[in-house]
Amino acid sequence: KKKIKIYIENENGEKKTIEIEVEGDIDEIAKELAKKYNVKIVKIEP
């Protein structure tokens, strides 16, 4: 498992940072999160 930080922006332009532990393809997981929460991924840090 890797701990990563995902910087997101919602439709109101509010920026947030999510810190999660992931296993597998980080890009795939980030895309799923973006779709699920309707946010834009700004940056992903390993």
Rank of each mutant, 00 (worst) to 15 (best):
K1D: 02
K1P: 10
K1E: 03
K1C: 12
K2V: 14
K2A: 11
K2T: 12
K2H: 12
K2R: 14
K2Q: 13
K3V: 08
K3Q: 07
K3L: 12
K3G: 05
K3N: 06
K3R: 14
I4C: 08
I4W: 15
K5H: 05
K5E: 02
K5L: 13
I6F: 15
I6T: 00
I6V: 10
I6A: 03
I6S: 00
Y7F: 09
Y7S: 05
Y7D: 03
Y7A: 02
Y7E: 05
I8H: 02
I8Y: 15
I8R: 00
I8N: 00
I8D: 00
I8F: 15
I8W: 14
I8S: 02
E9A: 06
E9H: 06
E9W: 08
N10R: 13
N10L: 15
N10V: 07
N10D: 13
N10I: 07
E11M: 12
E11Y: 12
E11A: 13
E11D: 10
E11G: 11
E11K: 13
E11L: 11
N12Q: 12
N12A: 12
N12Y: 14
N12F: 13
N12D: 10
G13E: 02
G13F: 04
G13H: 05
G13K: 04
G13R: 03
G13L: 03
G13S: 03
G13A: 03
G13N: 04
G13I: 00
E14P: 02
E14S: 07
E14F: 12
E14L: 10
E14V: 11
E14M: 11
E14W: 13
K15L: 14
K15V: 14
K15W: 09
K15F: 14
K15G: 09
K15Q: 14
K15N: 09
K15Y: 13
K16R: 14
K16M: 14
K16V: 08
T17W: 14
T17P: 01
T17V: 14
T17G: 03
I18M: 10
I18D: 00
I18H: 02
I18K: 01
I18W: 15
E19P: 00
E19Y: 11
E19V: 11
E19R: 04
E19K: 05
I20F: 08
I20Q: 02
I20K: 01
I20S: 01
I20R: 02
I20C: 11
E21D: 10
E21I: 12
V22M: 10
V22S: 07
V22P: 03
V22L: 08
V22W: 14
E23S: 11
G24R: 03
G24N: 03
D25V: 04
D25H: 05
D25T: 06
D25G: 04
D25W: 05
D25E: 07
I26H: 04
I26S: 04
I26N: 02
D27W: 15
D27N: 11
D27Q: 09
D27A: 10
D27S: 09
E28L: 12
E28Y: 08
I29F: 15
I29S: 04
I29W: 13
I29A: 11
I29T: 04
I29R: 05
I29M: 08
I29Y: 14
A30F: 10
A30K: 04
A30R: 05
A30N: 01
K31G: 06
K31R: 14
K31M: 09
K31H: 08
K31D: 07
K31Q: 10
K31E: 08
K31F: 09
E32M: 14
E32S: 10
E32R: 14
L33K: 00
L33A: 01
L33M: 07
L33D: 00
L33W: 15
A34R: 08
A34S: 09
A34H: 04
A34V: 06
K35R: 14
K35F: 07
K35H: 05
K36S: 04
K36A: 04
K36R: 12
K36G: 01
K36L: 11
K36E: 04
K36D: 02
Y37D: 02
Y37H: 05
Y37G: 02
Y37I: 03
Y37C: 05
Y37M: 11
N38V: 03
N38Y: 06
N38G: 13
N38R: 11
N38D: 03
V39E: 01
V39L: 08
V39C: 13
V39Y: 15
K40I: 14
K40N: 06
K40V: 11
K40Q: 07
K40F: 10
I41A: 02
I41F: 05
I41Q: 01
I41M: 03
I41V: 07
V42I: 15
V42S: 03
V42H: 04
K43V: 08
K43S: 11
K43Q: 07
I44G: 01
I44N: 01
I44F: 05
I44H: 02
I44W: 12
E45F: 08
E45I: 11
P46G: 09
P46K: 08
P46L: 15
P46F: 15
P46W: 15
